[in-house]
Design a protein around this nucleic acid. Structure first.
Length: 271
DNA sequence: ATGTCTGTTTCCTA
DNA sequence: GTAGGAAACAGACA
């Protein structure tokens, strides 16, 4: 699931329920998702602290904490969460049924924040300092929702990779995933195997505007919507057709990921 | 039962 | 620098 829009949805869940609230207790049901510190230390460091303004960079969600509700300066540690392929963040009542894949739970007085993840492909890091935070985020490019058109172009033209792979590369642009990239390329009418080197000015504009549109709409929904008018609404159809021209969609592994595009709308690479 | 698939990332090889 | 494969993990599905 989780690409930028999904994580943005999780950020809103956290913002709605736990800003300024005190963590009354922490449950670690599966210590293997907690990186760097022991489960015990993890609990000690978070219990009693107050949650600050949740942030997101790419696919990472950051929950800063402070010693009091007022947030008086001691702004660390910061809980950094990555959702891998199947992770999610849920706000539940304290007596909600336990779930097999709830790995870590932050308990508050009026409810609890559950990190649920079936496949434990990633996990969470408890950053103890700004240096810790930067060690994680420093690997990433600018957030896809914040990057300027000029910066996007600059970063993508530094590679000779095909568009699909380049856009998926978190160290170039952070936040795009398999669905958002396919949707963006379809809207920009660009073939996923084209090279960034061959794009002209108008194509860069299209790409950027398509990306902005996809991220804005998807973030509002908290997921890439599978609406009929979107490519994503047809990628799992047995005989998926392009919502624009009804051509049968093409499926192929590109850069190791299932890629869907319209062979009519998205013209092939040169040569 | 076995193999294949999956909205992620990382590590290794050629 | 780049592509491809496998692996981490835990399923669902044919």
């Amino acid at each position: 699931m989780p690409e930028l829009p999904d994580v943005e949805g999780f950020r809103r869940v956290a913002a709605e329920h736990v800003i300024g609230r005190r963590v009354t207790s922490v449950r670690v049901h599966d210590a293997s998702v907690v990186q760097g510190v022991s489960a015990r230390r993890f609990r000690e460091l978070l219990r009693g602290r107050h949650v600050g303004q949740p942030r997101r960079h790419g696919k990472w969600l950051l929950l800063p904490t402070s010693g009091s509700a007022a947030g008086e300066g001691d702004g660390l540690p910061c809980l950094m969460v990555h959702f891998g392929m199947t992770g999610m963040l849920l706000w539940c009542s304290v007596d909600a049924d336990p779930h097999q894949h709830d790995r870590v739970v932050l308990v508050f007085t009026d409810g609890e924040l559950r990190y649920r993840d079936m496949r434990k492909l990633k996990g969470m890091v408890l950053a103890r300092s700004e240096v810790d935070v930067e060690a994680v985020l420093g690997e990433l490019g600018p957030d896809a929702g914040q990057v300027s058109r000029a910066d996007l172009r600059d970063r993508l033209t530094r590679t000779r990779r095909q568009l699909k792979s380049a856009l998926m590369d978190q160290s170039r642009i952070a936040g795009l995933g398999n669905l958002t990239v396919d949707e963006t390329l379809w809207r920009a009418r660009l073939h996923p195997q084209r090279t960034t080197k061959e794009l002209d000015e108008s194509q860069w504009k299209s790409l950027y505007r398509a990306m902005r549109f996809v991220l804005r709409e998807s973030s509002a929904a908290g997921l890439v919507p599978d609406r009929p008018s979107w490519l994503t609404g047809h990628r799992d159809d047995a005989d998926g057709r392009c919502p624009r021209c009804s051509t049968t969609l093409r499926h192929q592994q590109i850069g190791g990921r299932t890629t869907v595009w319209c062979p009519h709308c998205q013209s092939r690479p040169q040569g």
